[in-house]
């Protein structure tokens, strides 16, 4: 009796530990943007302001979490030959729900994310997690994976958008509230940074920086 209890405890503990492992890996060591270099299209497009980056991140976390849960639940019944269309339908459903909800309740965000909201469907982070993780793991671990990758994506978008908004407009605001304004820079901002070339430059430099930090760590 005691043994059984111990086993059960050990089992649940390792499941918890596994959950945290899957959760933590997505944030830094397999950060979707900086390390896996996935989902770069929305990353480039929406990081011109912090607001957009946060809105996009919230959207991706919602879709990733829901699709991971559903795909994990149906993984044993899903036929291998039809799995990709099934994943896409599941993902598209949640993206459509998201855009309907955004349109109804947060129209300014819906407007500013524009086409990129609908394009979450083809964000390879989400399809990637469905194929690599959720279709092979339990619901609990899939939740951990979705949250970890989602937060890693958010972290990347926030870093990029902070740099771009501050350099490109000389000020920073969140949800219409201005946090600060840099005197000289805001008068003649480096508009380049909120334009597409600025996105490429910032992401390229950040990727190089993280690569360099990784190299240092390995040595």
């Amino acid at each position: 009796m005691e043994n059984k209890n111990n086993n059960k405890k050990a089992g649940s503990k390792s499941l918890g530990a596994q959950f945290w492992k899957e959760f933590a890996k997505g944030i830094i060591i397999s950060n979707p943007v900086f390390i896996l270099a996935l989902g770069l299209c929305p990353t480039l497009a929406v990081t011109s302001s912090l607001d957009n980056a946060l809105g996009m991140s919230a959207g991706v976390i919602f879709v990733l979490l829901c699709s991971n849960i559903i795909i994990s639940i149906i993984r044993k019944a899903t036929p291998a030959s039809a799995r990709i269309p099934v994943f896409i339908v599941v993902i598209a459903t949640f993206v459509t729900i998201l855009s309907l909800v955004f349109q109804a309740y947060i129209p300014p965000l819906y407007e500013s994310l524009g086409i990129y909201l609908a394009l979450i469907v083809v964000n390879c982070i989400i399809l990637g997690r469905a194929e690599v993780f959720a279709s092979k793991n339990s619901v609990l671990l899939s939740i951990g994976d979705a949250l970890g990758i989602g937060i890693g994506f958010t972290l990347a978008l926030v870093i990029i958008s902070l740099l771009r908004e501050i350099l490109g407009t000389g000020s920073l605001s969140v949800f219409g509230l201005e946090l600060f304004k840099i005197p000289v820079l805001s008068a003649s901002p480096m508009t380049f940074f909120i334009l597409p070339p600025g996105a490429f430059l910032v992401i390229g430099l950040l990727l190089a920086l993280f690569k360099w930090l990784g190299v240092i760590k390995n040595e």
């Binding site: 036929p79 039809a82 099934v86 339908v89 599941v90 459509t96 309907l100 909800v101 109804a104």
Partner: peptide, 25 residues
């Protein structure tokens, strides 16, 4: 035929969910 049936069920579930949410928003 199973993949076909399965995909059809998924699509039907998806469509009914979306119709419902659209009717609210």
């Amino acid at each position: 035929i199973y993949p076909l049936v399965f995909l059809t069920i998924i699509v039907l579930a998806s469509v009914s969910l979306l119709v419902y949410i659209n009717s609210i928003t």
